[in-house]
């Protein structure tokens, strides 16, 4: 029983990471109508930006989070302005190819600047709390922080989307592009804010991954498939669905280690995604098919 609870905790931590990625993928798909394949490498680059920041100023690991989020938001807007904006007028699928190329560019940049070896934010092992009232469940402080902070970030995205003018404009564009454009919504500004949020959340996912395990140039790419699975499960184009999708995928991936070798964890995410594509391609919460 404790084993299952323990795996549930790991699953929720992984789910928090996937949620951060999937919200961005979902929003970008909603506004720009393409699956952003560089999102995994946004996560990687964000994590490494955070690493450079804390090692330059000698700060503790959690300082990597705000630095990575600000840095990656800027990088995302930059990439959009330099590359994606130029090909936005053609078919969305060209953007898909461009983002696939961008994924490789970012990954090789990370390898060039930071090298290909594993790195960590802080050396040493963190001692978990032992929760005796939950059957000796062990909880690392970092895991608790990851879950709480992602909860906070999700809440802020929710408030932004429902309470601000720009957030409402964003939802309108996602729901009905033509209607939104004729009613005078500033499309370029909405797109820019989409990249700011998508980039910042991807960086948060990367930092969470880095704090939970280690930093590696492939860390984001290997997480991309579960992130897409989460976005599809929740209904692609639906940021709220992404939360449910992320948690379901994260918990299923960790729970699966009870039954099958851990090497096949990504296969679980993939299987759920394929099942979803066959049975209900619009996702749990009706998304854009």
């Amino acid at each position: 029983m404790t084993d299952i609870l323990q795996l549930l905790v790991y699953g929720l931590v992984l789910g928090s990471v996937l949620t951060m990625g999937a919200i961005g993928v979902s929003m970008i798909f909603g506004i720009l109508r393409f699956a952003h394949f560089a999102h995994g490498d946004f996560m990687t680059l964000g994590a490494y930006l955070g690493l450079s920041f804390i090692s330059a100023f000698g700060l503790s690991s959690w300082w990597a989070l705000p630095a990575a989020m600000v840095g990656m938001a800027a990088v995302a807007v930059f990439i959009d302005q330099v590359l994606y904006r130029r090909i936005r007028r053609t078919q969305p699928v060209i953007l898909l190819i461009a983002s696939f190329g961008m994924a490789l560019i970012l990954r090789s940049l990370v390898q060039l600047i930071w090298g290909s070896d594993n790195q960590t934010y802080a050396s040493g092992i963190q001692f978990p709390w032992r929760l005796d009232w939950l059957g000796g469940l062990r909880l690392k402080p970092d895991h608790l922080w990851i879950m709480l902070i992602s909860l906070g970030l999700v809440a802020s995205v929710h408030l932004f989307l429902t309470r601000t003018r720009l957030g409402k404009a964003m939802r309108a564009m996602s729901d009905n592009m033509d209607l939104a454009l004729v009613s005078g919504i500033p499309a370029e500004r909405v797109i820019m804010v989409t990249w700011v949020i998508g980039g910042a959340l991807a960086a948060a996912a990367g930092v969470f991954l880095g704090i939970d395990t280690r930093l590696h140039p492939m860390m984001g790419w290997t997480t991309l498939l579960p992130v897409f699975a989460a976005a599809i499960l929740g209904g692609i184009g639906r940021p709220y669905g992404a939360i449910a999708g992320g948690m379901i995928i994260g918990v299923s991936m960790e729970m699966s280690t009870l039954l099958i070798p851990a090497a096949y964890k990504p296969a679980v995410a993939f299987a759920i995604m394929v099942g979803m594509l066959i049975l209900r391609p619009q996702g749990i919460f009706k998304g854009t098919v």
Partner: peptide
Amino acid sequence: LRTDYLAIASIGIAE
């Protein structure tokens, strides 16, 4: 399905 789904599914199958 839309070709984006094929893209995601195909990268999954390759992995």
